[in-house]
């Protein structure tokens, strides 16, 4: 798939903007439109009146045209070998109970629609919100009789990308009401707390300075509507929590643990900042 084909997918106006991008567009999100396999994605929404952002942008709008193009075509999107693997795993019997995901959930295309868009979600039994990975693990241990696997295990990423794909194009729709409020507040507190020797909070980069270059990187709003995301830097897919960890290390802070209450709360809060953006799972970023 050549660059020419990719570029023809982008509008002429877009190409015009690209020509100017080294001087003008760098200061902000670009104006490109994301169309994946013919379906138009929402990559910008007005922020909530009492919210922190006037305009909410998908990270896609801050990436280079070449990286952007990789997400527009499932054949080009390097995450799709994992998606295919996830599809296979969906119907593969695993664990001591002789069942697969499809034994209970039938066709993922039907039953998993909208799941990614509304995770993390309240778990009544645990009395706290859980992420998609934790929900999968709960199914594995309780219903399949299988072992838990880590968030960034290849099989987990195959499952989260495959399940996430069923929500692609749907608006992020996180419930922060009721018992979730306290957790969203907890995540918010973490978001605005300065950490590490470099003494920065999430907000310092992703709220106060998005759209600017920090060395070779173009700072986005840190939206997570595309996770698990294929990062070119990782040469693979990764979970939201892995991305959080990387940010904290950059600031010379000791990261919270993947799957910890802190990161679940942060994921919940950050997801809620992206209400209304299209789920782009599995997105491609640099």
């Amino acid at each position: 798939m050549g660059i020419n084909k990719r570029l023809t997918r982008l509008t002429l106006a877009t190409i015009g903007a690209f020509a100017l991008s080294s001087t003008i567009a760098l200061a902000d999100a670009d104006d490109n439109e994301l169309v994946i396999e013919g379906a138009k994605m929402t990559t910008m929404v007005e922020g909530a009146k009492d919210g922190p952002l006037d305009e909410v942008y998908s990270g896609w709008r801050f990436r280079s045209e070449e990286t952007q193009a990789l997400e527009t075509d499932d054949f080009d999107n390097p995450a799709f070998s994992a998606v295919d693997r996830g599809k296979e795993l969906w119907t593969t019997v695993t664990g001591s109970k002789g069942k697969s995901c499809s034994s209970c959930h039938d066709k993922a295309e039907d039953t998993m629609k909208g799941v990614r868009a509304s995770m993390p979600k309240w778990d009544k039994d645990l009395g706290k919100p859980i992420t998609l990975e934790q929900q999968i693990n709960e199914c594995r241990t309780d219903r399949l009789g299988a072992e838990k696997i880590k968030f960034d295990h290849a099989d987990m990423l195959a499952m989260t990308s495959y399940i996430g794909l069923q929500s692609r194009g749907m608006p992020v729709n996180i419930d922060t009401s009721g018992p979730m409020t306290e957790w969203a507040e907890k995540g918010k507190k973490i978001y605005y707390t300065r950490v590490g020797q470099l003494d920065m909070s999430c907000a310092n980069c992703h709220e106060d300075n998005y759209g600017k270059r920090i060395r070779a990187d173009h700072l986005s709003q840190g939206q997570i509507n595309g996770f698990p995301t294929y990062r070119l830097k990782w040469n693979g897919l990764g979970s939201v929590h892995r991305r959080f960890k990387g940010c904290m290390k950059n600031i010379r802070a000791k990261p919270f643990k993947v799957g910890s209450d802190e990161f679940v709360a942060l994921e919940l809060y950050v997801a809620s900042r992206g209400q209304g953006l299209s789920v782009e799972t599995p997105a491609v970023r640099n």
Partner: peptide, 24 residues
């Protein structure tokens, strides 16, 4: 300000062990 303080010991919480008690 986002700018780090290069010669100050009181910075953000959870500073990595190898940078603890050290200035940048």
């Amino acid at each position: 300000t986002i700018m780090p303080s290069f010669y100050r010991l009181e910075n953000g919480i959870r500073t990595m062990k190898k940078f603890k008690g050290k200035t940048i």
